[in-house]
């Protein structure tokens, strides 16, 4: 791996060679295959990819909530230098919520319909912090204020069904922030929301994490959200990282042919195009991932080597990219493509 061991010393979260498998009757499916990345303190790392690329599974694996039969087959996960992927359930439970918060996709189903917002907040606060009922309620109120619930003092005793989708996602964010975690894993936090509310939620999340110095792993398939919020972005394809680097660099000079196609498919305001570029074909299903580079059947620049040998992450500019076009160091994506 191109990443040096020393980087994991300062990293808040280090994932090393993570492999997630699903044993089935028809053999083992590899959903996430040998991925490594770091998240620095206070950093927002966007993880982008199509459905089934393994982004959400990676998030679930980090907090130890992979649904059986899914399991971590190989690899290591470090939180502030401490290995957490082999911890017993009870110890990992204490990390969840306390050190790693989580935000889920659908705010309409993320809250227990039978308990008031207050009860759910207080329960979570008291699980992690030594506060009495009155202190916990005061903290819950402060959190609701912070996430922008208007007249929080009145609404704290309301039930989830009395809140709109956007408001519920704010409550979910408050729940994730209950114990001031160092890292939040946000799994498609805006996908289920109205477009007009998505931007509010993203800027709220970004602002809060900036204030609290909280790092975020922002899982999404929305490049707009990534461009808006992320510092760095990891592009996933078929359970592997295709490209990872600073968000502006990845967007402006996409290196991996897949990323390039992904960027080409986003319309730009002010640029008139008759037809958006598209990547032909679909991401292979887990049991049909081809040998070599998983993208090779859809890649216009694929060579015989791509069909046989799996590319490793190569450093290119400030990014790293898993593509044979970048094996010779120093070539940029543009040059590589021009050379074809």
């Amino acid at each position: 791996m191109a990443m040096s061991a020393s980087s994991s010393d300062q990293a808040l979260l280090s994932v090393r060679n993570l492999r997630i498998e699903f044993p089935t009757r028809h053999g083992t499916l590899v959903a996430v295959d040998d991925i490594s990345f770091d998240i620095l303190p206070g950093e927002i790392l966007g993880v982008v990819g199509e459905s089934g690329a393994g982004k959400s599974l990676t998030g679930a694996a980090i907090i130890g909530l992979l649904e059986p039969p899914g399991r971590i087959a190989r690899g290591e996960i470090f939180l502030e230098g401490r290995r957490i992927d082999k911890l017993p359930y009870e110890q990992l439970r204490r990390i969840r919520g306390r050190q790693i918060g989580a935000i889920f996709q659908d705010p309409l189903t993320s809250l227990n319909p039978l308990y008031s917002i207050n009860r759910q907040l207080v329960e979570t606060i008291q699980t992690h912090l030594p506060l009495n009922d009155r202190e916990a309620r005061a903290r819950a109120l402060a959190l609701l204020d912070e996430v922008g619930i208007p007249s929080a003092a009145e609404r704290i005793d309301h039930y989830p069904h009395q809140f709109s989708g956007g408001m519920r996602q704010r409550v979910v964010i408050a729940l994730a922030l209950c114990a001031e975690p160092r890292l939040i894993i946000a799994d498609e936090p805006t996908t289920a929301l109205d477009v007009s509310i998505q931007a509010q939620i993203i800027s709220l999340l970004k602002g809060l994490c900036h204030e609290h110095g909280t790092a975020v792993m922002l899982v999404t398939h929305d490049m707009g959200v990534i461009a808006e919020a992320a510092d760095r972005v990891a592009v996933m394809y078929s359970g592997r990282i295709a490209e990872i680097g600073p968000v502006q660099e990845v967007i402006r000079t996409a290196k991996h042919p897949y990323t390039h196609g992904l960027m080409g498919s986003i319309p730009l305001i002010g640029h008139h195009v008759d037809k958006l570029t598209q990547i032909d074909g679909a991401m292979p299903r887990l049991q049909e991932i081809p040998a070599g580079c998983p993208f090779n059947p859809r890649c216009e620049q694929a060579t015989d080597r791509c069909r046989v040998e799996r590319p490793n992450l190569q450093t290119a500019q400030k990014s790293q990219v898993a593509c044979h076009l970048f094996d010779e160091t120093g070539r940029t994506g543009v040059e590589a493509r021009a050379g074809e």
């Binding site: 907090i63 909530l65 439970r93 204490r94 990390i95 969840r96 919520g97 306390r98 918060g101 989580a102 889920f104 996709q105 659908d106 189903t109 993320s110 809250l111 227990n112 319909p113 329960e123 979570t124 699980t127 992690h128 979910v172 729940l175 994730a176 209950c178 114990a179």
Partner: peptide
């Protein structure tokens, strides 16, 4: 989802 979210918040199994 709300059970998964409850687990993700670190609530005890009993809770």
């Amino acid at each position: 989802d709300y059970i998964k979210f409850a687990r993700a918040r670190g609530l005890s199994n009993r809770a």
